[in-house]
Nucleic acid binder design. Structure first.
Lengths: 182, 182
DNA sequence: CAAGATATGTCAACATGACTGACATAAATT
DNA sequence: AATTTATGTCAGTCATGTTGACATATCTTG
């Protein structure tokens, strides 16, 4: 933990001491921790830039994304997926409804439920943002073979908590199969 | 883009309509997009919980992390890495200084610079949080062979913007030759 | 040396997106 | 009929980001 290879880098020259500090090393997965930070930062950055033109933020993107992807999602499902309070969701959802990106339909069985659907306008927004992110992903996967791609998918799945999965995670992981073994 | 399988999912059944909406498919990498969302959510969630006990937030974690990992980082470097304004950084940095998690040293060459270092107290915090995240990563990588791990690392690197890299990214990617170990 | 540029810090105002708590309404369940 | 559930809303707070203006110390340059 106090394994500082700092002196190693500062002996390089006086004028360099603050220019290129050498990273510490040790028993942690600093590599993956930092790669995840930067990769996610740039990944969501793609969408952030576009969203400004619509006057929306990340919160709107997340709502639009899941409503588009899982048509007929209930408000309660969305709360589970996003892990925010209904008051927080209410604000952005109201905007998206008012501006015609999402429509609500009353549930057929349970008329208390409000099932959410993306309008064509909403679909266009989601598609635009997903296109940017897909471009980045496709670029990143370009030189990776199928086994590598499978490993990436397996890794990301294994990073996700499987206890108490919400509706969307159930869909992603497949309902019933609790173990990704074969 | 208007490839909607909307009607298909909503006619599934009356009793199931809101329970398990079927995801749309298409030309996008929805799989990776959503896996990244959930994986990152749970990855940062590990630290979030611990941080509450310290009265800190994610912003404090990010600052502590990079100061610990790259001892002697300048304030300006930190601004580049975190991509926030000095006013935003100032607030959390002041707290971390006041509470003894970070110390500043005046630069030897340029006495205007404030070089940042983690105190033992700061190191302990970073190690605790990195430990949680490392546990998750180690668990996720457990059943993946070395080629797969290499593919994961390659993928995450390729997801990061390489134009205008900051000091930390230079260290991660190596300025021509240097590779960070482990 | 004087003048300007740079690194940092600070004050004030504001925006977004979280939060808690309280309460309202309609519809389903018991 | 009473209670629970799904949703919506009002009001206040907090964390963390923003812009703009300005101060101070120090380095660089004419």
């Amino acid at each position: 933990m106090t394994d500082i290879n700092f002196s190693k880098s500062s002996v390089a020259s006086d004028s360099q001491e603050a220019a290129s500090p050498a990273p510490r090393t040790g028993e942690f997965r600093w590599d993956i921790i930092e790669l995840l930070f930067f990769a996610y930062r740039d990944f969501v950055g793609d969408a952030d830039h576009e969203l400004e033109a619509f006057g929306f933020g990340r919160a709107h993107h997340r709502v639009m994304h899941f409503v588009y992807r899982y048509p007929g999602l209930k408000v309660a499902d969305l709360l589970d997926v996003l892990r925010i309070t209904k008051q927080s969701l209410g604000r952005v959802l109201k905007q998206l409804l008012d501006e015609g990106y999402i429509i609500q339909k009353t549930g057929n069985n349970d008329r208390r439920q409000r099932l959410l659907y993306a309008t064509p306008k909403g679909e266009a927004l989601v598609a635009k943002l997903a296109g940017l992110q897909t471009d980045r992903i496709t670029r990143a996967l370009r030189d990776i073979n199928p086994e590598g791609v499978a490993a990436i998918s397996e890794f990301l799945r294994a990073m996700i908590d499987r206890d108490d999965p919400d509706k969307v995670l159930e869909a992603i992981f497949g309902i019933g199969s609790k173990k990704p073994r074969e």
